[in-house]
Each structure stands twice: as C-alpha cells, then as structure tokens.
C-alpha cells in the first residue's frame, strides 16, 4: 500500500470507496471455510501416509522370511479378504437398494403427508442404532431364525449356484451378514433418495401426468431419471458403509480366509474390516503390518468405488437437467 500515491488514496477514501472498517465477519468466514477444506485433505493425507508407512514392511518383506515366521504370502492372504468384503457388501446392496428406493418413493410420492413424516423419522432412527447392537441382533436373533431358510433355499433353489452346497448349521453366513448390512445401510440410502425424489421438478411431473401417465409412469419419466445421479451417490455412500462395517460383521460372520461364492454354507470368506478387528488384539510384529496393509487395500477399494460412482454420474451430465 505504501507504494501507491497518498493523494489518490485519500481521495478514494473521501469518496467512500475505501471501507473504513475491515470486514471481520468476511475474513473469519473465509478463513474457517478454507481451513476446513484444507483440514479434510490433510487428515486424508495423514491417514493414507500412516497406512502406507505401516503397511510397507508387509509388502516388501521377502515371502520366504514371512513364511519362516509362520505367515503366508501377502497377496494370497489379502485377496480372499478383499473378495469377502466386496461380496458381502454387494449382497447387502442387492437386498437394500430396491427396498430403500421403494420406501423413498412411497414417502415422497405415495404416502399421505402425515404418514410420510412419521415413516421418515422411523427410518432415520435406524441410522442411530449402534452397529454392535445390529451385530448382537444378527448373532442371537437373526442367524438362528434364518437357519430354516438356509435349509429351504439349498434344498429347493440349490440349482442356483450361489445357493448350492451344504447349508450352515449356525446361520452365521455371508447371507445373514448381508441381511444385517442391508438393514444398516437402508436408512442412509432411503433418506438420500427421498430428498432427491422430493426435489424432482413439479414442472416435469405435471408434463408427464398431462401426457396421460399413471403415477408409476410419471415416476419413471420425470422422477427417476432426474434422481439418477442422486440414487447412485446414495448407493455409493451405502456401499462405503457396508465395505467398512466392522463390528456387526465381526460378530455375525463366521469367516475363513477363502474365496467362496456360495452364500449359505458353513465356509464363508471373511471381510477385511472384521478380520482386522478380530486379529488385531493378538497380533504382533509383521502381522500388524500385514493387517494394516489389508486396511490400505480396503482404503483403495473404497476410493475406487467412489471414483467409479463419480464417473457414472458425470457420464450423462448433459442429460441431467442441470443445463
């Protein structure tokens, strides 16, 4: 400022163009929002750095050394876990997504207003239940209750490869786990979808109705296409939660380190998060590095899933109605 001509400055000040007081609120808000933006990046970078640093020994140690200490080779150990993680999460999505979209549509477009509100609150309440409660419910209530269904499915629908094999005697299978996960991710998918459905423009809903669309046809024409990006985001958030869920899976699933597509048998793949939780208390030395390396794999999977979702949403951006 000192380099500018003092005369020019004072004339600008007298014309009321130079603010007399610094705008503190503006500065504070800008600082806060910029700081928050930077903070999230820093936190993420720190987490990634921690994972990479601590995982490094497990990835670089000679397999022979690992074997000498009683551990298997890293990739053949972690890939079944990664498979189990994705497999259980996919099962949860298959079960939860149709139900969530159905509930969301019912709340946004079918139910009378009062009922819709009550239902909305109830669904949100589900999100407030701690995951250990879901886990205990899964192990003590759901798993035993589902044993007859396991038997029935393997007996009568056993020709379908996923349902083949000897049914589990405990019910603590990938199937049961997926159901528990589905219940857990239902609220987030439902409430996000509901919000998006409610925002569907009235303009286009009326356009569809005026063409002689029934309510369902109107939803297919004007609501679902509009909500597409939002639905994908909701599913991805749900998937993120299902991939990372630890406690409920650790309690419910009786898993082993294997790749197995059959969902009803006693031999089930384990998931990364549950395996970390179950193995960590007794782990030492390189084992800890291996477990953290498996956490890094989960991190990468989640990142990849989110990028895929962004790509799906962006692919048809010109049809999104934003233009």
């Amino acid at each position: 400022m000192s380099s500018t001509a003092p005369a020019a400055e004072s004339s600008a000040a007298s014309a009321g163009l130079v603010p007399t007081k610094p705008r503190i609120g503006d500065r504070v808000f800008q600082g806060l929002s910029t700081g928050s933006g930077i903070a999230i990046l820093v936190i993420l970078a720190l987490v990634a750095a921690f994972l990479v640093l601590r995982a490094f020994p497990a990835l670089t140690t000679d397999p022979a050394t690992l074997a000498a200490q009683g551990y298997g080779e890293f990739w053949s150990w972690v890939l079944p876990l990664a498979f189990g993680t994705v497999w259980a999460a996919i099962g949860a999505l298959v079960l939860a997504v149709p139900v969530a979209i159905g509930i969301a549509l019912f709340i946004s477009h079918y139910a009378p207003r009062r009922l819709a509100q009550g239902l909305g609150y109830t669904i949100d309440l589900l999100a407030a239940v701690p995951s250990v409660v879901f886990g205990l419910w899964g192990i003590f209530v759901l798993a035993p209750a589902l044993i007859p269904l396991h038997v029935w499915l393997t007996t009568y629908v056993g020709w379908f490869p996923l349902f083949s094999g000897q049914p589990s005697g405990t019910g603590r299978t990938i199937f049961t786990t997926s159901i528990v996960l589905a219940v857990m991710i239902l609220p987030i998918i439902t409430s996000l979808c509901r919000e998006v459905f409610l925002q569907a423009p009235n303009l286009h809903e009326e356009a569809a109705l005026a063409l002689g669309a029934t309510r369902w046809e109107m939803i297919r024409m004007a609501v679902l296409p509009f909500a597409r990006a939002g639905i994908v985001s909701a599913i991805m958030l749900g998937l993120g939660r299902a991939l990372g869920e630890t406690m409920a899976v650790a309690l419910v699933l009786s898993g082993q380190n294997r790749v197995d597509f059959q969902v009803l048998t006693a031999e089930n793949p384990n998931t990364i998060a549950a395996n970390i939780a179950l193995s960590f208390p007794e782990a030492y030395g390189l084992r800890i590095n291996q477990l953290i390396a498996s956490g890094l794999v989960l991190f990468v999977i989640t990142l990849a899933v989110n990028m895929l979702a962004r790509w799906i949403v962006a692919r048809r951006a010109q049809y999104s109605g934003a233009n």
Binding site: H204, E206, L211, G212, P225, F226, R316, Y319, S320
Partner: peptide
C-alpha cells in the same frame, strides 16, 4: 383421469421438455 389426459393434451406456461430425454 389418465384416459382423459390422453385425449386432452396440455401445454404449460414454462416449457417443460423432459431433460433426460
């Protein structure tokens, strides 16, 4: 009413083509 609307077309105040089509 669905059948009524199929026989009586309507054009609205603001143009509303379906953006996803």
């Amino acid at each position: 009413p669905v059948n009524v609307r199929r026989q009586i077309g309507m054009v609205f105040q603001r143009p509303n083509p379906f953006p996803t089509m």
